[in-house]
């Protein structure tokens, strides 16, 4: 049986499914990385993805353009991100509560709005929305590994490109420097006259945009249109992926791939005679193992640093 699993894993079909499953997780994980590095824990990704998934369908149906649909989904993400920022920064809500609220809105609100706007219940099957096309590269077919890229969505390439863009943002632009400074020591940032709130807003907006693209992928490529609860926890898996990747773009990509692979593996093992319930736990098991390993390493590192660095600057008494 193991041989059967192994042989199915090392196929281009399997790799292609890993890429497909990873794409929305990667978008959301990058979204999480951007806000996290600015010191804002955005746990509303799941809700943003849901809202964006519906928006993508509606915008594309309205404009009959997949591009406008994706853009609309992204902009809706920005809007929700900024709204969270408004509640958190202006009105002083706890950011975790704001995230939970967005998630609940994403769960129930989308069904409500779908019904109000289209009269459909639960799915948008009857709405004539556009799909994001795949980038057909038939010449890759048959080539090991690369063959997995033969029929991927354009959005998968966009996601991979975003890894690079987020890296450039963090390390090569003034905005990235500001984001990292605000996330690490907001006092330092405000002491030089920077507006911490402004940077937090920008980070939340960007975070919303990326999560929005993830949502668009769900309803405009992975599935034919919107259906209730279609994001199914990917926003939370993305949080784990971001944490495991330590908020670094490359690390986030690798851990997203790991989660994608785990999910793909559990799909592929459905036919192997193992109890399906057991197989379905695989992605979550890997999540737990991954996070435990990560935490263990972080604790060990923190201990080492504490031993090495004692910062007298922070020990002085208040005057």
């Amino acid at each position: 049986m193991l041989a059967q699993i192994m042989s199915s894993v090392f196929t281009t079909v399997f790799l292609a499914s890993v890429l497909r499953i990873t794409t929305p997780i990667l978008f959301a994980a990058l979204a999480s990385a951007v806000s996290e590095r600015a010191g804002v824990a955005n746990i509303g990704l799941e809700g943003i993805m849901m809202i964006a998934a519906l928006s993508g369908v509606l915008f594309s149906a309205w404009s009959q353009s997949a591009f406008i649909g994706v853009l609309g989904a992204g902009m809706m993400g920005v809007l929700v991100g900024l709204m969270m920022g408004f509640f958190y920064l202006k009105l002083g809500t706890d950011i975790i509560l704001a995230g939970i609220a967005v998630n609940m809105l994403g769960g129930g609100g989308t069904i409500f709005f779908l019904f109000i706007l289209t009269g459909q219940r639960g799915t948008s099957a009857a709405v004539l929305s556009r799909m994001v096309p795949a980038l057909e590269m038939p010449f890759l077919e048959g080539i090991p590994v690369l063959g997995a890229f033969a029929r991927q969505s354009i959005l998968t390439y966009v996601a991979l490109l975003c890894v690079l863009l987020v890296y450039i943002l963090f390390y090569k632009t003034p905005l990235g420097l500001k984001i990292r400074a605000v996330g690490e020591n907001p006092n330092a940032a405000s002491s030089v006259g920077m507006s911490v709130n402004k940077v937090s807003y920008i980070a939340l907006g960007l975070s919303g945009f990326l999560a929005g693209l993830g949502g668009a992928y769900m309803s405009m490529f992975a599935a034919m249109g919107f259906s209730a609860n279609m994001v199914a926890g990917r926003g939370f898996i993305a949080l784990a992926a971001q944490t495991m990747g330590r908020g670094e773009p490359l690390g986030t990509l690798l851990s997203s791939l790991l989660f994608g692979a785990a999910d793909a593996l559990s799909n592929h093992m459905q036919g192997t005679g193992l109890p399906s319930q057991l197989v379905a736990t695989l992605p979550y098991l890997i999540t737990i193992i991954g996070l435990s390993m990560y935490t263990w390493r972080t604790i060990k590192k923190a201990k080492r640093i504490r031993k090495r660095h004692s910062e007298p600057a922070n020990s002085g008494e208040e005057s």
């Binding site: 420097l177 990292r180 400074a181 020591n185 330092a188 922070n314 002085g316």
Partner: peptide
Amino acid sequence: MVHQHFMLVPSLTVAENIVLGIE
């Protein structure tokens, strides 16, 4: 002002801290 508790970002470099906000 040079605060008693330094207003610096530990993971950034000296130069990055110095130009923060006026990059």
